[in-house]
Simulated scan of single mutants.
Amino acid sequence: MRYFNVDEANRLVPLLSRTFEHIRPWVERVQQLVETLGTPEGKALANHEALREERDALLEKVRLELREFHEMGLEIKGAQGLVDFRAHRGEEPVYLCWRLGEPAVSHWHGMYDGFSGRRPIDSPDEFAPTYLS
């Protein structure tokens, strides 16, 4: 399992930003399709199956675009651009947290706190990568 320090996470921010901007139209279209397909009117549409196929194809495109990040050890928490990087703050395992639109990784949260538990990074030196964990 890979653990990141703040500098390592920040080096990925430009690539993350470009990727999430690239997939944004697909994600928005999937959201529209899910809403349409979830209504009684949508279920009655003659092209219902075609809409489901479009949704599934777009979801697969999104998965393929984000797969590289999963392989690097990042955790994608939302296709709209929410990413966690495993890190250690002293001996405590935590997540460094970034979301699309932020210029850098500037927050962290506990393993079970989630986005609502985000706290600002006061000192980047508190977070060290651990390659042997």
Rank of each mutant, 00 (worst) to 15 (best):
E68F: 14
G110I: 03
K43A: 10
V62T: 09
R67G: 11
F20G: 04
E71V: 02
V83T: 13
F85T: 01
M111Y: 08
A46R: 05
I76V: 10
Y112N: 09
I23K: 00
S17I: 12
E54Q: 12
R29W: 14
R67T: 10
L82Y: 15
P93Y: 02
Q80G: 11
A46H: 06
E8M: 11
G101Q: 10
L33H: 15
L59W: 09
E28P: 05
E91M: 07
D56V: 14
Q80H: 14
G73Q: 12
K61P: 11
N10R: 08
L15Y: 09
L58S: 13
S106L: 15
Q32R: 13
Q32G: 08
R52P: 02
G42M: 11
Q31R: 01
F69A: 00
E53N: 07
L45S: 15
W98Q: 08
K61M: 14
A87Y: 02
L58Y: 15
E53V: 03
E102H: 08
L12C: 10
L58H: 15
P103C: 09
G81T: 03
L51P: 05
K61I: 14
W108D: 06
G101T: 09
V83E: 15
V13H: 01
A79Y: 03
E60K: 03
C97F: 07
P14F: 14
P25K: 09
H107Q: 04
R99M: 08
L59F: 10
A44M: 10
E41F: 13
K77W: 04
T36W: 03
G90V: 11
F85K: 00
L66S: 13
Q32K: 13
L15D: 07
R52H: 04
L74D: 10
Q80S: 12
L66C: 13
V13W: 02
E28S: 06
E71A: 06
E65Q: 15
R11I: 12
R63E: 11
E102P: 07
R18V: 03
R52Q: 05
H109D: 04
R11K: 14
D84Q: 00
L51K: 07
E102V: 04
E65S: 13
N47V: 01
K43I: 09
N47G: 05
G73R: 14
L33V: 12
A79M: 07
C97M: 09
A9P: 03
V94A: 00
R11V: 11
Y112R: 10
V94W: 01
N47H: 08
D113T: 05
E65H: 15
E102G: 07
N10Y: 05
E35R: 15
G110F: 00
F69K: 01
E91I: 06
G73Y: 13
E21G: 00
W98F: 11
L96N: 01
V13R: 01
R18C: 06
G42Y: 10
H48Q: 06
R86L: 07
P14I: 13
H107G: 03
L64P: 11
L37G: 04
L74T: 11
R55S: 03
H109M: 07
V13F: 00
N47D: 04
